[in-house]
Design a protein around this nucleic acid. Sequence first.
DNA 1: ACGCACAATATTGTATACAAAGCTGCTCAG
DNA 2: CTGAGCAGCTTTGTATACAATATTGTGCGT
Lengths: 243, 243
Amino acid sequence: MTRDIVQLPRLKAGHPKARAEPTTHQVVAQNLSRAIHEHRLVPGLKLGEDELADIYNVSRTIVRTALQTLSHERLVDIKRHRGAFVACPAPKEAQEVFEARELLEPRTARSAALKATREDVAQLKAHIEKEHAAMDAGDKGYALYLSGQLHVEIARIAAQDTITSFIESLIARSSLVVALYWRRESALCESHAHDRLVEAIRANDPAEAEALMKSHLVDLHSALDLNTSPRSNGPLRDMLLGR
Amino acid sequence: MTRDIVQLPRLKAGHPKARAEPTTHQVVAQNLSRAIHEHRLVPGLKLGEDELADIYNVSRTIVRTALQTLSHERLVDIKRHRGAFVACPAPKEAQEVFEARELLEPRTARSAALKATREDVAQLKAHIEKEHAAMDAGDKGYALYLSGQLHVEIARIAAQDTITSFIESLIARSSLVVALYWRRESALCESHAHDRLVEAIRANDPAEAEALMKSHLVDLHSALDLNTSPRSNGPLRDMLLGR
DNA sequence: ACGCACAATATTGTATACAAAGCTGCTCAG
DNA sequence: CTGAGCAGCTTTGTATACAATATTGTGCGT
């Protein structure tokens, strides 16, 4: 069977600072990560090595490296002699991810509000613009991705790289959690929360930024339905045994 | 040149629950990680692939995988076309690692104090026994390793896997920080802090456990000398330009 | 018809071969 | 003597070949 060959996009190409161009496996990992963020890859899906190697037109070596990266980020679950699958966080894990976010992010938002420069705020506003544009264009996946990334941008402003990387990881995993446990249909009406958050940061109002972030996260958290039985076998069971 | 062949130890062998035995690259990664923890491998040291492959008597493929794992844990720095090196966290990073610990661990200690069972406490006490024994035997490296692992054990009792894995990562990195920035010579006199901490957990005294953990971490943090210039080239500079 | 055992197949795990990039040390011009 | 440039060597990056294991399919016996 002949397969589409994806032209590997140069991520962050043309960036003024011209940072070291990413390695091949990083590009593949980024690509897969993005696909998971945008819910184009559903939890539980098998990611065959040969298949991916074929798709990206690289050797299995590269694919394996990329999958290992994603596995360390807990976006992918590698089972010995079985293969790699898009991760299916159990309800307990989902709960923990959001608890951790509620612990780290409000504090980070506070710090960001204190440190944010004019340029930072401009960047955030531009980001929100893209978010709105994606929504208007009906590109739900991209909007979802951007909505997560805003949190990362805010963490970056706080300039605590270590904690930022934790948050980054948590947000990636949140994407899986949302894919599995989201309840409401009107998912993204919450973009007003982002607007207000950015406004608090612009005003250098740490208390307000912290409070808004906290309530935003509680809001998201409460929109999850974590009462499903802790099925361990991926989503197949759900698809068959009537949700 | 002929080289010693390390018989790969079965880590966690004989564990009652008989969990899936680790893959080869996991064993290698664990081994290297342990060596870093115990300061047998100094920051900045080059970890050549062929060299390690020879030592562990496996192929470079395995070594590469292991190094990638350690790189994700930020214990190892992989430079493209240059190789893998034991990481040299900059003072800023060192600072952040301890700040993050001060944020996460006291809260976790509190939670552990609430949840600790009789068996948990017994395990902690046994752990401290080993710590003392290692100290008495003059095995500083092992004592150092154990002293970090106690924090991990406490986090485990709190049963928040997500945050525990963050803490695990931070403790590993702390080992590098200590190797680079430790000031006092009488490093490990602080084992009394551990005794008191475990006692608070045994007494199910969350407030006390939290306070003790906090002050213990502040104590460690303050024993670092982070005022050195942010040398980017590893420890060689220090060794030559008179510390 | 059912279920177990075995064979065929497909996929992952590991080793190795080859290509590409970096580093070292030489040579030679100035 | 100094320093730039080139050549050879060393080390890493990638692809591929082979081995090991899980899964699937088939057939036989009951």
